[in-house]
Simulated scan of single mutants.
Amino acid sequence: MSNPIIGKQAPTFSLPNYDGQTYEFKPGNGVPTALFFYPSSGTYGCTKEACAFRDAIAEKGVFKSKVNVVGVSSNPVAKQKEFVEKYNLTYPVLSDAKGEARKAYGTSKGLLGLTDSRTTFIIDSKGIVRDLFDSVINYAGHTKFVEKWLDKLQAEEQTGKPATPLAADAIPNESENGAQSPGVPEARTEEVKEESKAAAAVQA
């Protein structure tokens, strides 16, 4: 997906973290950053995505030692705190109630244009936005996107050759790893329910 900030210095911002403390987002400290925007804390796909990042940090060496993970949604601090504590999330989960960070990163709308998008940005160790992955349905693909980019950035450091953005088909669906595909009825129904709730809220 095209975005004007790709290849540019990542925008910095200050937002409340789930604990109520101000979090200063300033990438480029020598470690890559995975910044993921998601529609709403506690919903089916967002919970799956957030927990996938949590598990990746705990289980995968490339995540644990070579990337900072930061989650952002429009939910208020109290909701973020509840979300973090319920699912034992181990990274900052920020409240972007006014949409300031989303605006800075130029994120799109989600399915049907009724909700915020699910978009993950990979930012290199120098603070340059290298690529993004935008998919509401393929919530499991976001950690895979980051993992592939971490491998690319490591190779870039070793060879000195700049890494290129991932092809659109480079991120597999869950079904390719034997898990439930986001496209099957049960998962898709849950995502559609999220969109329906959003539509009802807009019309109310």
Results as ranks from 00 to 15, higher is better:
residue 155 A to L: 13
residue 57 I to P: 05
residue 8 K to R: 10
residue 11 P to Q: 03
residue 24 E to R: 15
residue 50 A to W: 09
residue 198 A to K: 02
residue 198 A to N: 01
residue 130 R to C: 04
residue 25 F to K: 09
residue 153 L to H: 03
residue 170 A to D: 06
residue 52 A to Y: 11
residue 148 K to Y: 07
residue 74 S to D: 11
residue 121 F to H: 06
residue 173 N to G: 12
residue 14 S to E: 06
residue 47 T to P: 02
residue 173 N to M: 11
residue 122 I to R: 04
residue 110 G to Y: 06
residue 66 K to D: 15
residue 200 A to P: 01
residue 59 E to G: 07
residue 90 T to M: 01
residue 103 K to N: 12
residue 59 E to V: 06
residue 68 N to V: 04
residue 71 G to K: 00
residue 45 G to S: 08
residue 44 Y to I: 13
residue 87 Y to K: 03
residue 106 G to C: 03
residue 63 F to D: 10
residue 87 Y to S: 07
residue 185 P to D: 03
residue 118 R to D: 02
residue 50 A to Q: 11
residue 27 P to C: 00
residue 71 G to W: 00
residue 35 L to P: 06
residue 124 D to S: 06
residue 60 K to M: 05
residue 108 S to C: 12
residue 106 G to T: 08
residue 149 W to G: 05
residue 178 G to A: 10
residue 28 G to P: 12
residue 127 G to W: 09
residue 111 L to W: 09
residue 29 N to E: 00
residue 80 Q to H: 14
residue 181 S to W: 02
residue 63 F to L: 09
residue 23 Y to A: 01
residue 4 P to E: 05
residue 45 G to V: 04
residue 143 T to E: 06
residue 29 N to G: 03
residue 15 L to S: 01
residue 146 V to G: 00
residue 164 T to I: 05
residue 12 T to K: 10
residue 129 V to Y: 07
residue 100 E to I: 03
residue 80 Q to S: 13
residue 10 A to C: 14
residue 64 K to W: 05
residue 127 G to A: 00
residue 65 S to A: 15
residue 176 E to T: 14
residue 54 R to Q: 13
residue 29 N to K: 05
residue 103 K to L: 05
residue 133 F to I: 07
residue 196 S to V: 15
residue 131 D to I: 06
residue 172 P to A: 01
residue 93 V to A: 04
residue 96 D to R: 02
residue 86 K to L: 10
residue 119 T to W: 09
residue 74 S to I: 11
residue 46 C to F: 08
residue 73 S to N: 09
residue 192 V to C: 15
residue 191 E to K: 09
residue 117 S to V: 13
residue 85 E to P: 03
residue 30 G to R: 04
residue 170 A to W: 00
residue 115 T to L: 10
residue 41 S to C: 14
residue 40 S to C: 14
residue 162 P to W: 11
residue 187 A to C: 14
residue 85 E to H: 02
residue 5 I to D: 07
residue 32 P to D: 01
residue 132 L to P: 05
residue 160 G to Y: 04
residue 39 P to I: 09
residue 30 G to Q: 07
residue 128 I to Y: 11
residue 50 A to P: 13
residue 189 T to A: 15
residue 65 S to I: 11
residue 19 D to S: 01
residue 81 K to V: 03
residue 46 C to M: 08
residue 141 G to N: 01
residue 30 G to H: 04
residue 136 V to N: 15
residue 171 I to L: 00
residue 64 K to G: 14
residue 163 A to Y: 00
residue 150 L to G: 07
residue 42 G to Q: 05
residue 204 A to R: 10
residue 24 E to P: 12
residue 71 G to I: 03
residue 197 K to P: 01
residue 92 P to K: 05
residue 114 L to N: 11
residue 175 S to Q: 07
residue 164 T to V: 07
residue 73 S to P: 07
residue 29 N to P: 06
residue 35 L to V: 10
residue 188 R to M: 08
